[in-house]
Simulated scan of single mutants.
Amino acid sequence: MTPGRTTENAVLAGPLVLFLLAILGFPAALSLVYGFSDTSFETLTSPEFSGLKNFRDVAADPTFWQAAWFSLRFGAITAVLQCGLGLALAVYLAPLVRRHGWTVAILIIPMIVAPAMMGLMYRLVLHEFAGPVPHYMYAWFGWSPAFLGPANVFKTVIVAETLQWTPFAFLLFLAAYQSIPEDLREAAAVDGTRPWRLFWKIELPLMLPTVFVALFVRFIDGFRVFDNIYTLVGAGPGGSTTSMSIYIYETFLRRGEIGKAMAAAILLFLTAFALLAVAQRLMKGRAR
């Protein structure tokens, strides 16, 4: 690349860099300051440097580790379920979508609804005393589980998250499946390859990069989940559905421990950054 072209690219990218620094740089720097300071709402404008005290407090807080364990399980389980269902739907419905493209608009409706609204909807539908699902289950079968109770709340939020975001994985896998050259399928059919063997030996290996990206994206999104769980059940019975984001929110706004909340947010960011770095290394290794 010539020096003139480099200077031109720098000039063109300058406004974007300045915009990102203004929008993201200041909040990030302020979060770092608060994370290493003894800060509350009373001392918000004059934080006192406290070193690693906030990080030690976070590490000694059992609620933080409970939230981290919940986020890890929730992110992993929902990512696997969403990608598994999305892959199955993409392969099974590909002929239908090829003939009637408008069906995709119907299939992605759950993804369009705001997560907070989806959580409120499930809360109304599954409420133990006022929800129609428990009412009719008890009327028809004489029994209804407490969907939002301690024994079932984790399964409930897993199902709610999976139902809403499976369409996202479906779209990714449908695009990857339709991008496979038809020549490969025709050649395999001429050789007498059965559909299942065609999928496992040809189609799925070609879709593996998309599968990996979808798993990673859905895991990160599940790990930092907040709005739909918070509107559905809040922190849950005994804090059983407290994710990392909910932990940070309640530490910041409900308890006023701003420095501790920022320290937890920094740890969450570093964890996400480390996962992204590992994912990029794995993808590069596979590309080689």
Rank of each mutant, 00 (worst) to 15 (best):
E186G: 05
A169F: 06
T241I: 08
G239W: 07
R99M: 07
V125E: 05
A214M: 09
L171P: 04
P134R: 02
A169H: 08
L215C: 14
G131H: 00
P181W: 12
P145M: 12
N228F: 07
F226W: 07
I158N: 01
E186K: 10
P132H: 04
L172C: 05
V213Y: 09
L163N: 10
A187W: 01
A175T: 12
I106S: 12
L198R: 12
L206I: 07
E203F: 02
V159Q: 03
L215N: 07
A235V: 15
F199P: 01
G142S: 08
H127Y: 14
V217A: 08
R218M: 04
V211R: 00
F223I: 11
P110T: 08
E186Q: 13
P134W: 07
W140A: 10
Y230V: 02
G238A: 14
S240H: 01
Y136N: 06
G131D: 03
L232P: 05
T210I: 05
A114L: 12
R197S: 12
V104F: 02
D227A: 13
Y136V: 15
N228K: 15
I109Y: 15
A139M: 10
G234Q: 13
T156F: 03
T103C: 12
S240A: 11
M121P: 00
E161L: 00
E128Q: 14
M117Y: 14
W165P: 01
D183L: 11
A146C: 05
G222E: 08
P134Q: 02
L215M: 15
Y177W: 09
T193G: 09
I106L: 14
E128S: 13
A214D: 03
A214L: 08
V157I: 15
H127E: 13
F141S: 09
P181G: 12
